[in-house]
Nucleic acid binder design. Structure first.
Lengths: 195, 195
DNA sequence: GTCTATATAATGATAGAC
DNA sequence: GTCTATCATTATATAGAC
């Protein structure tokens, strides 16, 4: 939004964010970034040391945004189950994939500890946040006490990340929703049946 | 194995399979394929129309192999729950990711119906296979009757695919296993507790 | 069937003018 | 700060000798 009113440096970061989401790190060239940002070579190498440096700024911002979005739902109103369900059902651009998770399939991102760090930290934060919320629900008797919060949290995040894979493979968001419904059915307290 | 004893065409396909797994389609250049296969430009363009044609042969073979591996476990001995658990727990090169699923994050693969087809068909087959197996377990009273086989199957496949994402983000296979344990705990018939 | 040349465009970066 | 050269390398493919 209003990308034309941003500073050159901002336009470079925003253009990089879009391209990383669409094409990943390996598939994104400086040239494509510059074209989208409406900037020349000089600007990019003035503000950033190179492609990895610019990508790091873009990834950090995307990761921060994803965390804020998740917290918006997970920290919202409702019981723990309701908030987990709201997180799983929240509207997503499913066919575009997860702008953070998709980076884990990028060989150059995984090869760089610096580029991987924000991805790791974000998914790790998400798992811990969900684990805490699940344990809260357990204390309230909403979930079976024999379940492990960290395990359930990992299963939840994995279902979301894998849901993107299924959706993109089939070319339709349906598979994502189907998997989410399956997980929610397994998680649902008996009292919420037919929810 | 014995890649040096294969025909040139075979070596090209096998080298492409390895590189697609390691670096994806966008990150794999004909040059890298040729170097790994020990072949010249001419050989590749003699046997294949170009990069997409060679990649299609490689993807098809990888997809077939993955299906055979999955069927080996899902069609094996044991109750439906045991076979699903065996599938989820089977040994994997977790940090390398899924050679089929990772292709869904490749923009050029998703943009091509031809390249996407084997990926889609394989994951679709897997979901149907798991759904049938789950329903078999339901008939035997192993799983709750209110659960939907297709939904559970999608959640299972998504957990595996997303498990790779978590593992690669953290640089350790642990997160994959944690998610799988979480899902199995949710699926487990009461009689298998402590399994 | 395989090889080496050759071709055109893109990649990722640097130099230096303005 | 931004721009336009310029550069060495790689990507993807064709041509044609052997």
């Amino acid at each position: 939004m209003y990308i034309d009113r941003m500073s050159t440096s901002e336009r470079l970061i925003e253009s990089t964010r879009e391209l990383l989401w669409e094409r990943g790190y390996v598939g994104t060239s400086p040239k494509a970034i510059l074209e989208r940002a409406g900037a020349g070579q000089g600007s990019m190498y003035h503000h950033f040391k190179g492609k990895p440096d610019l990508a790091l700024a873009a990834i950090r911002r995307t990761a921060d945004e994803m965390r804020a979005t998740a917290e918006g739902v997970l920290g919202g109103p409702g019981t723990p189950y309701e908030r987990i369900a709201a997180y799983l059902r929240r509207e997503r651009d499913v066919l575009r994939g997860c702008p953070v998770g998709r980076l884990t399939m990028d060989p150059d991102v995984i090869a760089s500890d610096e580029l991987r760090a924000p991805v790791d930290e974000t998914l790790d934060w998400l798992r811990e946040r969900l684990a805490g919320l699940f344990e809260e629900g357990q204390e309230q008797g909403q979930f079976a006490p024999h379940l492990d919060g960290e395990e359930i949290a990992a299963a939840i995040v994995a279902t979301v990340q894998g849901g993107y894979v299924l959706a993109r493979a089939s070319g339709s968001p349906a598979a994502f929703d189907t998997g989410v419904r399956g997980l929610l059915a397994l998680l649902a307290p008996p009292s919420t049946r037919g929810d």
